[in-house]
């Protein structure tokens, strides 16, 4: 793996350590994410994938280490980042409709007190159109299926008009058609030289979907382009005993 220059990177993580009491959740992670790649963070349950994502986004205070985004601290870069949360973290009974949820993606650009304008609404409708949800714009969230809900949240991330996207397990609880639609859009973003970081579960689809991968199990086991990193040796270190199971080319059930 060639060394990346700092200004070729969207995210630089140095010596990141996150701990809960005596247990390190993440230990001494170094990560340089180049611009314009589709990166997966992969590892077993409890490996700290979501923690890594949330620490990069500045939502968790690390015990040590630092993170810079486009050469600056996260606080100065909030409008260059788009975010799609894990499914479980959302209140689906909230009284709001699909269009309104997508509009929330514009709030960062609006800042305090300013209300969304017609232009924001148009952007939101366009984003809903891109994910194929235009006809559902006035549906309440709990009237949508799992896949449809996920598309709405993808639309919300798109409308943030960011250069760097973070997505926490976007394929969980989603039908095959939606999964294809989502990955299609993510690749499209990558082709517009945006960076997309995804917490991912499924080793089967890893090499089809992603360019780069970080194998994580508290420590970073391996990091780089998928074809270099996805070796038996690395997977064995990451997943330990369950590796044999994976070798049989079966879908990975966590």
């Amino acid at each position: 793996m060639k060394d990346l220059l700092d200004d070729e990177c969207s995210v630089i993580v140095q010596d990141l350590t996150v701990a809960y009491k005596e247990k390190p959740v993440l230990w001494d992670i170094d990560l340089k994410i180049p611009k314009g790649v589709l990166l997966a963070i992969v590892g077993p349950n409890g490996a700290g994938k979501t923690t890594l994502l949330r620490s990069i986004m500045g939502l968790i205070k690390p015990a040590a280490g630092n993170v810079s985004i486009f050469g600056q601290s996260i606080k100065k870069q909030k409008n260059t980042i788009g975010y799609m949360p894990q499914r479980g973290s959302v209140d689906w009974d909230f009284p709001t409709d699909a269009l309104d949820v997508v509009m929330m993606g514009r709030y960062g650009h609006l800042g305090w007190f300013r209300r969304p304008t017609k232009a924001d609404k148009k952007l939101a409708l366009d984003a809903l159109d891109r994910v194929g949800m235009l006809d559902f714009s006035d549906r309440q969230l709990n009237q949508l299926s799992g896949g449809q809900q996920q598309r709405v949240f993808l639309a919300r991330a798109l409308v943030q008009d960011a250069d760097l996207y973070f997505m926490d397990e976007p394929f969980v609880g989603v039908d095959a058609v939606t999964e294809q639609a989502i990955i299609g859009l993510l690749k499209e973003l990558r082709n517009q030289s945006k960076t997309v970081v995804v917490v991912h579960h499924d080793l089967q689809t890893l090499s089809d979907y992603f360019d780069w991968v970080s194998l994580l199990n508290v420590r970073q086991i391996a990091y780089g382009p998928v074809k270099d990193v996805l070796t038996n040796e690395n997977l064995r270190t990451t997943y330990g005993g369950r590796r044999a199971f994976l070798m049989a080319n079966q879908p990975f059930v966590d």
């Binding site: 247990k23 390190p24 508290v218």
Partner: peptide, 9 residues
Amino acid sequence: TLFKDDHGY
């Protein structure tokens, strides 16, 4: 200990 197989923190 950090690299111990399959013990996941």
